[in-house]
Design a protein around this nucleic acid. Structure first.
Lengths: 188, 188
DNA sequence: AAATATACAGACAGGTCTGTCTACTGTCAA
DNA sequence: TTGACAGTAGACAGACCTGTCTGTATATTT
C-alpha cells in the first residue's frame, strides 16, 4: 500500500468513526506511518483530504448499495423493499455510526461549504438510484415515492444511531410497504 | 439579565447555530460581555454548560411543541397530523439548523457521553408526547405508530437541513396520513 | 557512479483550545 | 467604615491545531 493510499484509508476510517473536526492531521500522519511532508505532498490541505474522503465514500457506498439490493432481491419487483434489508445489514455493523454525509453536513454547519454540496450530491444520486429501482419494479409516480423512501432511510439512520441497534430498518420497511400498497391501490 | 443568564443565552444560540465543538468558551465570554472568572464561577466546565444548554432546550422545545400542536389543531382528532404542520413552522425559521439533539449526538460521536443520553432522553419524551396525541385521537396501537412518527420527523428534519427548505414537512405529513388511514382500515 | 525522486524524522511558527490565577472595582450591609 | 461579595480585565499554562521548513536516507533511473 502506497503512502497516499495509507493516508486516505486511515483518514477515512477516523473521519467516519470520530468525526472530521475531532481528528487532526497529526493523528492521521502518526497512524498511517508517514512523514508530515509526505502527507502535505499528497494532500494540499486537510480540507482537500476531507473532500477526497467524501467523494470516494460516495462511490463505494452506492456501489455497495446497488450490489446488496440486487443480491437480496433477485426479482426486480422485490427490490424496492429490499432497500431496507440492505440498510439493516449496514446498521448491524458494529462500526456503524450513521451516514457520513449527514454527519459531515451537521458537523460543518455552514451551508455554503463544499461538504454540504458533497452531501447534497450524494443524496441526490441515491435518490436517483431508488427512483430507478421503483420504476423498474413497475411503480408509477416514482419521483414522489423515491423522495419518501429517502426520507425514511434518513429517519431510520438517525433512529439506529440514537438507539444503538438496527431495529429501525424493519420499522421503515413496514412503512414503505404501506406506501407501496397505497400506491398500488390508487393505480387500480 | 444576570451574567449567568447572558452566558447561557449566548451559548445556547451559538451551540445550536454553529455546533458545540465549533464554539469556544472565549467566544461565549466575549459575546456575553462577562469576565472569564465569572464564566467559570457559574459553570464549572464547558461540558456542564453544554449539559445545561441541552436540558433547557429539551424543556423549551417540548413546551413549544405541545403548545403549537394545540394551537394548530383545536380538535384532538386533528392533532396527530398537525405535528407535521408544527414541524413545518419550525423548518421555516431562518435560523433552523436541524435538531439540536441529533446534531449533538453526531458531533460528540462517543455513545457513552452525556450528550447521547440527553438526546436519547429528549427523543423518548417526544415520542411519549406523540403517543399521547395519538391515543387521545382514538388511535389504537399508538406505540408502534408513535415510533413511526418520530422516524418521519427525524427524516424530515434531515431532509429540510439538506435541502435548505421546509418542503419535507408536507411530504412527511402525507406519509403519516397514509399510515393513519391504513391503521384505521385495519381497525374496521 | 551520479542524479533524481520519494519518503523519512522532527523542529518550528502561529494560532486556538480549556481552564487557572492575580489584581482591581463597585456595591451593599453590618 | 469596614468587610464580604460579585464582577471585570487580562496574563498565563499546557495542550492541541494546521501547515512549513530543514536535513537525511533510500531507491530508481540515467
Amino acid at each position: 500500500m502506497s503512502p497516499r493510499e495509507r493516508i486516505l484509508a486511515v483518514a477515512s476510517r477516523l473521519f467516519y468513526q470520530e468525526g472530521i473536526r475531532a481528528v487532526g492531521v497529526d493523528t492521521i500522519i502518526a497512524k498511517s506511518e508517514v512523514a508530515k511532508m509526505t502527507f502535505y505532498k499528497h494532500f494540499k490541505s486537510k480540507d482537500l483530504l476531507v473532500l477526497e474522503f467524501l467523494n470516494k465514500r460516495d462511490e463505494q457506498w452506492r456501489a455497495w448499495f446497488e450490489a446488496t439490493v440486487h443480491r437480496l432481491a433477485p426479482k426486480v419487483k422485490d427490490r424496492p423493499l429490499a432497500i431496507f434489508d440492505a440498510m439493516e445489514e449496514r446498521f448491524s455493523n458494529k462500526d456503524f455510526r450513521g451516514c457520513a454525509f449527514i454527519n459531515t453536513m451537521i458537523e460543518v454547519a455552514n451551508g455554503d461549504h463544499v461538504a454540504h454540496q458533497a452531501a447534497a450530491d450524494h443524496k441526490h444520486k441515491v435518490e436517483k438510484t431508488i427512483r430507478t429501482l421503483l420504476s423498474d419494479a413497475g411503480i408509477e409516480k416514482s419521483e414522489e415515492l423515491s423522495k419518501a423512501f429517502l426520507m425514511l432511510i434518513d429517519g431510520a439512520i438517525i433512529s439506529a444511531v440514537r438507539e444503538g441497534k438496527p431495529g429501525s430498518a424493519k420499522a421503515a420497511k413496514k412503512i414503505a410497504s404501506v406506501l407501496l400498497q397505497n400506491q398500488h391501490s390508487k393505480e387500480k
